[in-house]
């Protein structure tokens, strides 16, 4: 509908400069400039490298998004930006740019939560989020189970990782196997050729007395490294595909088991998955299988919208506008540790 708000979203919390444009719940443009290649040789995201890349990519990526959406700068009704959580210096580039656009265009600014944006992006694909819904967010920076009665104002964390994020475990195991960075996509591809039951890697925090909705992937990662090193010491070749498949199975088994349990215990019928790791093909397949068996409706955006992007930020901004939330002030900080319970930075 033409009278729905046209929102420009800016995302710079990690290594992707994402600019999205949405009208209401309709995606018009999703432009991303990634500095991942510059980080690859370091085996992880280098904050200063990411911040420099955001500054260079900002205006060209905004221009690309406007062209893709077929709109002009003057058509924009509101600016949304990730104000946290994320890398402090990287966030600050996006927040400052958003304020610049907001001041120049005299349009309201919405500083929104990155995690809530990962959930809200699903509205661009599957329409309005059911309320409440359960959200499983898994990426290189976060692994959380969230109960979401209202994405703009009421997000309740049920559990999260107590050590590594799921995506970090993928990166570290890929390094152990000599597969490069980032680990997620490459392990996914190797795992398709392997036997996921070949090696019984441990399932962290699944004992009867463990926190039911917290995650731990550090022990799993160590266990994979030990297994691989033992083969090397014995002079045996390492079955890369089987290790990848068995490791991946351990991760997605725990993630989906806990997500289904969270839905059942809270009487929630819709599970949303988001974050870069939810692009993983085995996670998507196993989640679908287990949701079908439990009578839960699974909602997962397409892989391109699961990774960090500007469209998700615009989507949450548009929802803030639709629900008449007051805009953020021009004084909002970039908050690297913004709690998931805060969907919007007000001042």
């Amino acid at each position: 509908m033409a009278d729905e708000p046209l929102v420009l979203g800016i995302e710079t919390s990690c290594d992707e400069t994402g600019i999205g444009i949405v009208r209401g719940t309709t995606l018009l443009a999703d432009a991303v400039a990634s500095s991942v290649d510059e980080h690859a040789r370091f085996g992880g995201v280098v904050p200063e490298v990411a911040s420099r890349a955001h500054l260079e990519a900002m205006v060209p990526t905004v221009r690309r998004a406007l062209a893709d959406a077929g709109v002009t700068m003057r058509d924009i009704d509101a600016i949304a930006v990730t104000s946290g959580p994320g890398l402090a210096g990287a966030l600050l580039v996006g927040v400052a740019a958003a304020k610049g656009y907001s001041v120049a265009l005299d349009k309201p600014l919405y500083g929104v939560n990155h995690l809530a944006s990962h959930v809200c992006v699903d509205q661009l694909e599957h329409g309005r989020l059911p309320e409440p819904c359960m959200a499983l967010l898994v990426s290189g920076g976060h692994s959380s189970l969230l109960l979401v009665p209202d994405i703009t104002s009421d997000v309740r964390p049920l559990g999260s990782t107590i050590d590594d994020a799921a995506g970090e475990a993928f990166d570290k195991v890929a390094r152990v196997l000599g597969l490069g960075f980032p680990g997620g996509p490459v392990i996914d591809r190797w795992a398709r050729e392997g036997d996921r039951a070949a090696i019984a890697f441990p399932r962290g925090l699944t004992g009867p007395r463990d926190a039911p909705f917290d995650f731990s992937f550090s022990g799993l990662k160590t266990s994979v490294a030990r297994w691989v090193e033992a083969r090397q010491r014995a002079g045996e070749s390492v079955p890369v595909a089987d290790v990848a498949a068995s490791f991946q199975e351990a991760v997605v088994d725990v993630l989906t088991r806990k997500a289904i349990r969270a839905c059942k215990e809270n009487g929630v019928e819709h599970l949303m998955m988001g974050g870069g790791v939810s692009a993983n093909t085995r996670l998507r397949a196993l989640a679908q299988e287990r949701c079908d068996a439990a009578g839960i409706v699974l909602r997962v955006p397409r892989p391109g919208l699961c990774t960090d992007n500007g469209a998700m930020v615009a989507a949450l901004g548009a929802e803030m506008v639709a629900r008449d939330r007051a805009p953020s002030t021009l004084s909002i900080p970039a908050d690297s540790s913004m709690p998931v319970t805060v969907s919007q930075a007000v001042s």
Binding site: L55, V59, V62, R63, A96, A97, A98, G100, Y101, A104
Partner: peptide, 10 residues
């Protein structure tokens, strides 16, 4: 710098 770039662009 990024504020200047955004203002100039808009």
């Amino acid at each position: 710098i990024v504020t200047a770039l955004a203002l100039g662009d808009a």
